[in-house]
Write a protein that binds this DNA or RNA. Structure first.
Lengths: 130, 130
DNA sequence: TCTCAAGTTGACGTTTACGTCAACGTCATA
DNA sequence: TATGACGTTGACGTAAACGTCAACTTGAGA
């Protein structure tokens, strides 16, 4: 019975500053269906839910997710959009995401090891001409 | 004194199959300066070095690296391209890469926790109407 | 010798994720 | 009242990362 989306209100430039993106980008995300802010006249007003969605989007970008993928995640988390007969599909999507993230984790560990090895090589080469 | 780039020879379609990409993509990478295969007449011939570079590129793509970034990594690993007075820069790039990967690792862990939490919510909701 | 699979080089098209610019509305305040 | 600062809606431009297509060559096998 809780009416979320109430308290903290942000302007578009608040969010732009908070996430270090442009207002143009935020409007673009809206046009792509990733955000649906309130309006006060024609001005957009963003609430906590929008803040959370944006956080998910920018984090997704750091991990190479497309906007379409982030949109899917947002919808997956959205309690409106997933009614009873979709629970199973949600669980499958959760599992897909996990699989992908695990692959990325392995990739990161491999790259880290290669970076360590390369740093060692370079340091060794530097020493051998001091 | 070791002459690398000798033994295993691949055709362009060998590599396309091995990495599940198209030959068009491989030629595109070459045109962007990421690969420089040998030629037999006008046919391209790829060696072990090219294989390794491609592996780095596709892994990079899974982590959201641009081709320009993968190219930088390839050049960083290339012993030709980094002579004495560039050692310091190489070490800085290694450190940059590490920083980025560590951020991604944190992002992954956060997302994993959120996925776990969401799965729990969904499962609970499913039970409460069995 | 024919042919067929595999490879090659342009040239052009496409999708994604925004940037840029113009033209306009709307407040708060000097 | 006018002058910014901030916001809005199109319309168009752009860079990256390929895909698609056409027109051609080349080598191995029937």
């Amino acid at each position: 019975m809780k009416n979320d989306e109430s308290k903290p209100i942000y302007t578009i430039s608040d969010l732009a500053q908070a996430f270090d993106i442009t207002t143009r980008t935020i409007r673009f995300y809206e046009s792509e269906g990733l955000l649906q802010p309130q309006r006060a006249g024609q001005k957009r007003l963003y609430g906590h839910g929008d803040f959370v969605k944006l956080k998910l989007i920018v984090r997704g970008k750091r991990l190479g997710f497309s906007l379409a993928e982030s949109k899917e995640l947002i919808e997956m988390y959205d309690p409106q959009h997933n009614n009873q007969d979709q629970y199973q599909k949600v669980l499958e999507k959760v599992q897909e995401s996990r699989t992908r993230l695990e692959q990325q984790k392995r990739d990161i560990e491999t790259m880290m090891r290669e970076l360590d090895a390369h740093e060692a090589r370079v340091r060794h080469a530097m020493e051998s001409l001091s």
